[in-house]
Amino acid sequence: MNLQFDDALEQFMTYIQLEKNYSPLTVQEYRTDLLEFFSFLHTEDVKELTQVEYVHARLYITKLYEEKKARTTVSRKISSIRSFFRFLNKEYEIDDVAFQALYHPKKEKRLPHFFYEEELSQLFQANEGEDRKSLRNMAILELLYATGIRVSELTSLQIKDIDFSLNIIRVMGKGRKERYVPFGEYAGHSLTRYIEEARSALMKSNKHNFVFVNLRGGAITSRGIRYILNEMIAKAELHTTIHPHMLRHTFATHLLNNGADLRTVQELLGHSSLSSTQVYTHVTKEHLRNTYINAHPRA
């Protein structure tokens, strides 16, 4: 069988986009990973997909390590290769057993950074204000902490996704999976003030339904959210860095510290696997340990 690389790639892209319903970003990551693998195969003088063997994949993974790629990057590329050859096995009966033997590197055990409640209070207090920009920024901060949603989920949030009668937002997460996340009184108050007192003025002549807008009236971007949060940290004079995911980590950690069960937190975060949520149990245990050491007279 003379199956061309480009033809097989396009068929696979169509499959993961239409049948697997992967997001455009995920589809692009698969494409990039596979094109890089194909480029490597050409340097190894592999001209047909039927000539690809396990040794080629292992050599490629070794090359990635030599280039000091992050373990998460290597793991993602392995997943891309395995999924691609699983597809070829299904459609063209190309043997994929060897590629299923590719093993993922062990993840680096890095505990997620989060804010302590005192730091968070300082952050909120320092950024209170009555102007339109302050009302918008406070609504962003309150909603990220209240719901633990990803920054991409925040930027894609539309007015119709908010139910103020139940204090719930509709979120479209990874893999286009829909979920509903509640928010509390503080976030509800900030959102209401922002929408009623600031959003229309910030929109100017623009017409769209996205909740959060930049100062030019367009839909805010992930980069814009990061810029806003950095400004808020500087204003609060906190000696730390911030990224949107840090508020997601804080949301999960504070819930678990205050008695929420792991399954509930998993559902609120939109994690497909419980193992993704379990990292926060390590954070809470470390927090308890530090509290004990600092507070117990004979620790």
Results as ranks from 00 to 15, higher is better:
148 G>A: 06
73 T>R: 10
7 D>C: 02
176 R>Y: 15
282 H>A: 00
84 F>N: 01
234 A>K: 15
56 H>G: 11
81 I>V: 13
240 T>Y: 04
198 A>E: 03
134 S>M: 13
88 L>P: 11
61 I>H: 02
163 D>P: 14
115 F>S: 03
150 R>P: 09
158 Q>C: 13
33 D>N: 12
160 K>H: 07
199 R>V: 06
241 T>V: 02
23 S>E: 08
89 N>K: 03
238 L>T: 00
200 S>P: 06
222 S>P: 12
246 M>R: 07
207 K>L: 14
119 E>W: 11
126 A>D: 04
99 F>G: 01
171 V>H: 07
88 L>T: 01
203 M>K: 09
85 F>R: 00
82 R>G: 12
207 K>C: 13
194 Y>D: 05
114 F>Q: 02
163 D>K: 00
242 I>L: 13
142 E>K: 01
127 N>A: 06
5 F>T: 00
153 E>L: 09
154 L>I: 03
254 H>K: 12
165 S>D: 15
141 L>R: 03
263 R>L: 14
78 I>T: 06
108 E>G: 04
58 R>N: 08
224 G>H: 04
283 V>A: 08
231 E>S: 14
273 S>H: 14
233 I>Y: 11
73 T>V: 07
265 V>E: 03
56 H>Y: 15
239 H>T: 04
85 F>Y: 13
133 K>Q: 12
194 Y>L: 10
137 N>V: 02
219 A>R: 15
136 R>P: 08
137 N>W: 03
106 K>C: 11
79 S>R: 00
234 A>M: 07
292 Y>G: 06
237 E>T: 00
163 D>R: 00
107 K>R: 13
252 A>R: 07
22 Y>M: 12
